[in-house]
């Protein structure tokens, strides 16, 4: 049936949780592209047939014309599905820059196509250049602040760090009470977490 594969692609998108990426399905994707080109071949040959019979494509309404219309519509539908697949994935990829940061973990990178990997890098660079034009880091302060100080737990050995006027030794699993602004950079790097216990 025409267009079934393309809807399978979108089914994958719909089944994934929002904000989560599925593995890029290059097999199905390539097959749909192939389908598109087959539709086009059929479409062109029907048009050629009509031309050979000296029929005006604009006005003739015979079986060849309607056949061509079906191929055209299937092609357009496949295109919409392919674009929706790529575009929605691209939107999720954009959101990763805000949620995870500049460097994507291996398991996410494996899910991306080559072009998507490039897209992430370029898009990330566009955000960076906006932030440097403004001289303001927008990737911190993601949640509204409640208290200027927070309790944090250290997830990895960080060592001696000087925060403002205070020297502090951040060893793994230790719990500290820090200024939120100081802690935030470590939290975004995954070296600390907010300790809510």
């Amino acid at each position: 049936m025409y267009g079934r594969r393309a809807s399978q692609l979108l089914g994958e998108l719909a089944a994934a949780e929002t904000g989560q990426l599925t593995v890029y399905n290059s097999d199905t994707f390539d097959q749909v592209i192939k389908e598109c080109n087959e539709h086009n071949v059929q479409l062109q040959s029907l048009f050629r047939k009509m031309e050979e019979q000296n029929l005006d494509i604009q006005t003739t309404r015979n079986e060849d014309y309607f056949g061509a219309v079906i191929h055209h519509l299937s092609l357009a539908r496949n295109k919409r599905c392919l674009m929706a697949y790529m575009y929605n994935r691209a939107e999720t990829i954009q959101s990763l820059r805000w949620k995870i940061g500049k460097k994507l973990p291996q398991e996410i990178q494996e899910k991306l196509s080559f072009s998507e990997g490039e897209y992430f890098k370029n898009h990330s660079a566009a955000i960076d250049s906006y932030m440097s034009e403004l001289d303001l880091d927008l990737t911190v302060d993601m949640i509204p602040p409640k208290d200027p100080y927070i309790q944090i737990r250290v997830l990895d050995d960080i060592g001696e760090v000087s925060l403002g006027d205070l020297e502090i030794s951040l060893t793994r699993h230790s719990v500290h009470f820090l200024r939120r602004t100081d802690a935030e950079q470590f939290i975004s790097q995954g070296l600390m977490e907010e300790f809510l216990g």
């Binding site: 086009n40 092609l75 357009a76 295109k79 790529m86 575009y87 691209a90």
Partner: peptide, 14 residues
């Protein structure tokens, strides 16, 4: 991105 992953692989006119 869309050009290289979808559009350039579609038939002319699409």
């Amino acid at each position: 991105h869309l050009e290289q992953s979808v559009l350039s692989r579609l038939p002319f006119g699409y």
